[in-house]
Design a protein around this nucleic acid. Structure first.
Length: 447
RNA sequence: UCCUCGAUAGCUCAAUCGGCAGAGCGAGCGGCUGUUAACCGCUAGGUUCCAGGUUCGAGACCUGGUCGAGGAGCCA
């Protein structure tokens, strides 16, 4: 009885007879020779059958196997540079094949390109394709690396509620639902306020889960449901926060480089760009960034681009501005000290400059833009209350949040990291809808 | 909410000035002992997004609509 193995472990079994359980990804007949590219979830491997090695009826069955048929293949592993697959370079000489299910002939996914509408309508099948498989494997490693780094650096995962009573960040649009006799409840757009309660019990915490924004954003950087990591740290200032982000992002990038080499290679990612993601990241003040952007705007001669680059102090960066800033470095870039007016109400003002707050965004290189946004939080009760009033937020809804400032308040900081944006950047893909198994966009809740 | 672009075979697309609805892939059959999204031959496959209009004649032009994509704003 041959040992059942996974394709990802194939290199350890050269010369041995093994069994692989999976699905036919592609088939090529060549007369007395038949190639099956079989995927098993862990990778893709070429299985080669010679007519002379098998019963005639078995070989005939093989050459008529529809794409996506479920199979159990047994054969000897050998190294062959010609063999395609992920990792590739190994193949199985078929000795025996059992067909678990012969797939229907009308499988709609082609190995060639699909348009976004068709691909997304068939997302339940699209995820089987090599490109999507590779991206989602990277996503899983990004998420595991995120938890691993935080867990080994003294953080505790504290799940935040998804059904929440009110807007956390004011103006942003919320998904609304009926909640028994209590009136309306809303899908969480952040777990941060709950994290701030948790740090006073656990010191360093994070929540990691789906968040929801009913914004009508229709760009390659937006989903209505996306996964966000939100660490929050007691006794931590803005500088300390940036060190945490550096440590985490470095660990994520280096872990993916180590564990997803085959996936990155398949995606055609230039890994030298990711190898740069280590150590201290460059830091730039909002003031300096604004000067740079204004200069760029004034020098731009193309009228269309000039309109996009339009900038003055006090504005938040648009995607074109972020792209320009990230071109300055080959590492992620911190931009800190944004105008308070464009940031959330809970951010600590800069000492001596109340128009600026102790916030920091982390911009991914190569034009990918914001992947993390965070700040030092207001720790003083009266200052926070004043900000709530100024923003016109309902004081009653923030009663418990304000109370945190009465019993042992300390300087504290936190940030949010958009998982899909990180995955899109690491994989080098165009659109974050491919960085989540089943994307939710303004125009799509199916499948 | 605004701007731009698009919708033709299962998929990706072509169709010149308004004049017979086309190709590649996929599917079926046949051929080939090293294919890499194989290749070669044959076969099947169409409500040209919908509703009107102009015209001898509309996939193409006009009006209205539907759906999608990219971007802006907002944000992670």
């Amino acid at each position: 009885m041959a040992e059942q193995i996974s394709v990802s472990q194939i290199s350890k079994y050269i010369g041995q007879e093994v069994t692989i359980k999976g699905w036919v990804y592609n088939r090529t007949d060549k007369g007395k020779l038949c190639f099956l590219l079989v995927r098993d979830g862990s990778g893709f491997i070429q299985c080669v059958a010679f007519k002379g090695d098998l019963q005639p009826e078995t070989f005939d069955l093989l050459t008529h196997l529809p794409q996506e048929s479920a199979v159990i293949v047994t054969g000897a592993v050998r190294e062959d540079k010609r063999a395609p697959g992920i990792p590739g370079g190994y193949e199985l000489g078929v000795k025996q094949i059992e067909i678990v299910q012969e797939a229907g002939l009308d499988y709609p996914m082609s190995l060639k390109d699909h348009g976004p509408d068709f691909a997304l309508d068939h997302r339940h099948l699209w995820i089987r394709m090599q490109s999507q498989w590779a991206i989602l494997r990277v996503r899983a490693v990004v998420m595991a690396a995120t938890r691993a780094w935080l867990d080994s650096n003294g953080f505790f995962e504290m799940s935040a509620p998804i059904l929440t009573p009110a807007a956390a960040e004011g103006t942003t649009t919320l998904f609304e639902t009926e909640y028994f006799d209590e009136g309306k409840a809303y899908l969480a757009q952040t777990g941060q306020l709950y994290n701030e309660a948790n740090i006073f019990a656990f010191g360093k915490v994070y929540c990691f889960g789906p968040t929801f924004r009913a914004e009508k954003s229709k760009t390659r950087r937006h989903l209505t449901e996306f996964w966000m990591l939100e660490p929050e740290i007691a006794f931590c200032d803005l500088g300390g926060l940036m060190e945490v982000e550096e440590g985490l992002i470095t660990h994520i990038a280096q872990t993916v480089l180590r564990d997803c080499a085959a996936e990155l290679k398949f995606l055609g990612r230039d890994v030298s760009k990711l190898e740069n993601v280590t150590g201290a990241f460059p830091r730039m003040s909002y003031d300096d960034a604004a000067k740079y952007l204004i200069d760029l705007y004034e020098k731009e001669t193309d009228s269309e681009r000039k309109e996009l680059l339009k900038f003055e102090w006090g504005m938040d960066f648009g995607a074109p501005h972020e792209a320009e800033l990230t071109k300055l470095h080959d590492k992620p870039l911190f931009v800190y000290g944004y105008p308070s007016a464009v940031k959330a109400f809970y951010m600590e003002p800069w000492p001596g400059r109340p128009e600026v707050c102790k916030s920091v965004d982390l911009l991914a290189p190569e034009g990918y833009g914001e992947i993390c946004g965070g700040s030092e939080r207001i720790s003083d009760h009266d200052a926070l209350l004043a900000r709530i009033h100024k923003e016109g937020l309902p004081e009653e809804a923030f009663k418990w949040y304000l109370e945190l400032r009465k019993y042992g308040s300390v300087p504290h900081s936190g940030f949010g990291m958009g998982v899909e944006r990180v995955v899109a950047w690491i994989c080098g893909i165009e659109h974050i809808r491919e960085a989540i198994p089943f994307p939710r966009t303004i125009k799509r809740v199916y499948p």
